[in-house]
Every structure is written in C-alpha cells, then in structure tokens.
Amino acid sequence: MNENVLEVINLETIFKRDQQEIKILRGVNFSIQRGEVLGLVGESGSGKSITSLSIMKLFHGTSGEIKNGSISFHGTDLTKLDEASMRQLRGKKISMIFQEPMTSLNPVLKIGKQLTESIEMHMKLTRKQSTAHAIKTLKSVGIGRAEELMNEYPHQLSGGMRQRVMIAMAMACEPELLIADEPTTALDVTIQAQILELMKQLKEKNDTAILLITHDLGVVAEMCDRVVVMYAGQVVEEADVFELFANPKHPYTKGLINSVPKIGDRKEVLDSIPGNVPSPQNMPQGCKFAPRCSNAMEKCHEHEPEIETITESHFCSCWLYASKEVALHAK
C-alpha cells in the first residue's frame, strides 16, 4: 500500500458576499498517493478550481475561507498552518501550474530571475548554484536554448514556451505534489500534446503526485490513474480511470462522457445533459444533480445521497446505488 501524499477530508469552502456566506465546496473528499495522477473533473461552477486554491490557501484578494474539514499533507493539516508556514510549502513541497501562464509570470522580471529566486529561497543555494539548477530544470522541460531564455522576458515567449517555463518553475524544487489547473486549456492541440507528454515524463522521473484539474475528458483519459468527478461543490463519483470510462455509474458522469463528440464516432445527435449547473445561491434541495437527471426519483429531490462503495476502488453518490432506504415525507 502506498502512502497518501495528500488527503482532503470533508472540505468546505465559503465565499462571503454582502454579509452572506455562499458555500462553494460542500464537503469534498479525496486523496492522492505518491507518483499518482489524480484527475479532478467537472464543469465550470463545479468547484474544482476552488478546491485547488483551498489546498494552496491562495485566497488573497477574495473573500474565500475554509470553513470546515481538513487537508492533510504528509500528516500536517494545512488548514491549521499560518501564512508564513504555507509560504514555506508553496513552491517547494507543493507547486501549482495555472491555465494562463501569463498571469502567474511577472511581466517585468526576466525568466532567469523569476526561476532562481524561488530556488534560492527554498533550496538554500548560492546565486551561482541556483542559476545552474535553473538552467538544468529548463533543459529538463525540453527547452534547448535555456541559457538564452534566462535573459528573456515572459512576453517574448510563445504560449507553449511560457507553459514550459511555468512547469520548470513548478518542478524546480522537486515538489512532492503538483497541482495543475487546466494546464493545457489555453494551448493549441499540437502544443498540448507536447506539454502532456512532458508532464508524464517528469512524473515518471521524480515520482511526483499530480492533481490534474480539467474539464477535458480526453486529457483525463490520456493522463490520469484515478478520477474524481465533481458537481456543484461535491464529489459525485471516484474511480480508477479504466473503470470510470468503461463503467461510469453516476448519471452525471455518464452524461459527461456521452456528450463529448469523439473522432470516428458517427453519431448524428450527441447526448447532452439538459439544463444548466445550478448557481451556489440557488442550490436545489436533495441531490444537486436531480433537476437535470433523467433517472431522478422522488427521493432524489428531497434527500442528498451519501457516497456509496461500488467496488473497492469505485465510489459513487447516487440514490440508484444506495444501500439503505430513506423515508419519504411528502411536504
């Protein structure tokens, strides 16, 4: 049995607006093991990005706050750490790659400066050593002209190059956990293929655990070992990637998989999920997916289902698979 790098238990994150608390995450549970790629899948509004920000505790400038639950990283509960200790972890033990590399690179600093700064701070190296280390890291992400690039500014690079630099920055201190939030969504397909391949290689080499947040089921199928499907701030299904695609249980997961057009698949009409994701202020009672679900029963609209074990590595929260009954009281 492998050790868990990260364990998220019953995580609840809220945002405050006009003295009102809006619950974005409503009890999220999952764990990641060493050297594992865990896919976090969901549509916009599912809370997948808020999950990553909660793990990093990067709420500055927003009213976000962890209300409940724990995030244990090698046994340390991150929710209890202060900002200074978090800063020690960020970039060293836990790194993050964002969708839009331009927003996380400082436009007025040279690439070299940005890279060596965090290396110097976290790895306690001299200026010279950290420069050498930075160049080595850039080369490891497939940048041939690393020495030249150290003296360039972010805006001089193409989108794919910038994402490589971001990955180099994230991997420079050999983190144990890499959180990649839609790392290839802004990139062209041929460049996306390069970046995904690179992330796979780096994972193999360093045994890094990767939390891959994406809406693209193709990327999930390509990259992940295990998948967590989120809907409306909760995990609705969790399974091994082969199991999930071969035998999805939750009606939402099924709908998601079937609504993606596949090359070579000559369907005239695509399956789709009717309606829209509910907004956090207007959450329906009972199962949050019930209003869009074609299998919805009466109890789905009244009670929230609990997470059920389907097989040893497959969990799903849906009344279709419930082990115990619940009394209905029509109001």
Partner: peptide, 14 residues
C-alpha cells in the same frame, strides 16, 4: 419539444 423542455428549469432570481 426536447429542446424547449431543457430550458424549463428556470433559474429563479429577483
């Protein structure tokens, strides 16, 4: 009719 039905789920707000 299926398309019309899809939007029957009206998001209610002021």
């Amino acid at each position: 009719s299926s398309l019309v039905k899809q939007d029957a789920i009206v998001v209610k707000h002021a």
